[in-house]
Design a protein around this nucleic acid. Structure first.
Lengths: 254, 254
DNA sequence: CTTATCGGTTTGTCCGACAAAGCTAGATTT
DNA sequence: AAATCTAGCTTTGTCGGACAAACCGATAAG
């Protein structure tokens, strides 16, 4: 696979990249822990011996990557990258690749089933309480598609949290960000759609509480199949996500 | 969920962020297509009416996000974000969150099974030829853990490609980047490990070719269970990924 | 037809500067 | 004395200008 080269690969990375890499190393290696300050721009200028503009370009890179962030007073500090923020980038990439709803549906089915299985096995009392709270709020807005869609997305996030599996939480996030925004137009377009959604959530939560994996999986599948049927009424599964958004939600929002 | 506010949210984002957002909008909306030039920094300075340093900070943000890249002569252009690059960020985030191998294993099992199911259903002749080529090369280096680990990772990427599901490809990538680097130490640590790995790949490819979903899933599960058993010989599943890396691969490399 | 050379562009980096916002600590008020 | 206010210092965000190195295109030389 690899021949040993005569010369080491010459390093021609621009200075701002080296600045970013140097800071990244310190964070990933744990020498700077999340929450600890990176130092002021002036200090970084002194330490790296480059201009402040160069330092700032390096900072932008790390900031976008989620490795550093700013505290209340805009000072730099290391931070734990938020899945959510990073997932947004991935979702955007998916849109640009013109993925279809069929791909999205298939993968979401896999991940949500895995999610409910984990939740049935390992949900804590607190997880269950959170889900119950969400269910209660959902029942109160069953006639309002916009609010219900938001709570539906939250329900599934809580379910993934209840699985106690952070890798799973991460893996499902990009798909969820594309998947669940469509809930609004589907719930709004199908009579009794809201009621069915809340009913499904109720059964799922019940299954999690009773540690009944079979029921949990069954109702999760039904829940997603409902979504799929609703979707097929308004668009083709084989069209790109972006295209369908353009014609529905997006047009209405702007 | 939302009251209609009297005033529109006042916009206080820094200029470099606005520059980045403006360019991002053009790309995501499709007005600038992947491969098309963004323009020189000087042109952006003129269009946005801000300083070049500000423009450059905005460019760094987009570059890191994978939305723009540079052609051979360092000129800016829109590009299709590569899953791989973005997945690297997510993998890094997972390390910082100190995820355990148990989480990684559980999720990988889910995703690889989904992957093989998709491949059995939809693999093209070209996909199968690629997998066969990989298998052949693997068989040739069965005694070399480093090369074999690399080919194993490639095999699973090819399998995900064969599923024809880009969302799935994306979802499995971050986990794969953490999961498969361990293959080297596992294959190296277990006698006959290399042979078992190649054998499993052979059965999986055979199942894909025969469109036998049951066999494909069975051998994929066995393949991953092998990995898990090998892993348990050298570390605990409940330790963090980062911690284990530190003691094995990482120490050897530097 | 290939090679060499030469401006013109563009990027990467640097310097110096300034307004706005936050923080600090001393001064002022109650 | 405690709370409050204010003035100064620090830090960030932005700006203008500058220059070397790399790159492009075109022209000149072999």
């Amino acid at each position: 696979m690899s021949a040993t080269p005569l010369f080491r690969r010459i390093d021609v990375a621009p200075a701002y990249q080296k600045v970013a890499d140097a800071i990244e190393r310190e964070i990933v290696n744990g020498r700077i822990k999340p929450g600890e300050p990176i130092g002021t721009e002036q200090q970084l200028v002194a330490q790296f011996g480059v201009n402040r503009s160069t330092v700032r370009e390096g900072i932008r890179v790390l900031e976008e990557g989620g490795l550093i962030c700013r505290d209340s007073s805009r000072r730099l500090q290391a931070c734990l990258p938020r899945y959510n923020k990073l997932a947004t980038r991935l979702s955007r990439a998916l849109i640009l690749h013109e993925v279809t709803f069929r791909e999205l549906f298939e993968t979401s089915m896999t991940l949500e089933v895995a999610s409910v299985e984990g939740a049935v096995e390992r949900a804590t009392d607190e997880n269950i309480a959170d889900l119950a709270g969400n269910l209660e709020r959902s029942a109160a807005v069953v006639g309002n598609p916009a609010d219900l869609a938001e709570l539906d997305a939250e329900f599934h996030v809580l379910m993934a949290k209840a699985s106690q599996n952070r890798v799973l939480q991460l893996a499902r996030e990009p798909a969820a960000q594309l998947f669940f925004p469509t809930t609004e137009m589907i719930v709004g377009g199908v009579p009794e759609g809201g009621a069915r959604l809340v009913e499904a959530h109720r059964h799922i939560l019940d299954a999690i509480t009773r540690r009944d994996k079979e029921a949990g999986v069954l109702w999760t599948r039904r829940h997603l199949q409902d979504w799929r049927r609703g979707f097929e009424k308004i668009a083709s599964l084989d069209r790109s996500v972006e295209h369908t958004y353009m014609e529905h939600a997006y047009a209405a929002r702007q």
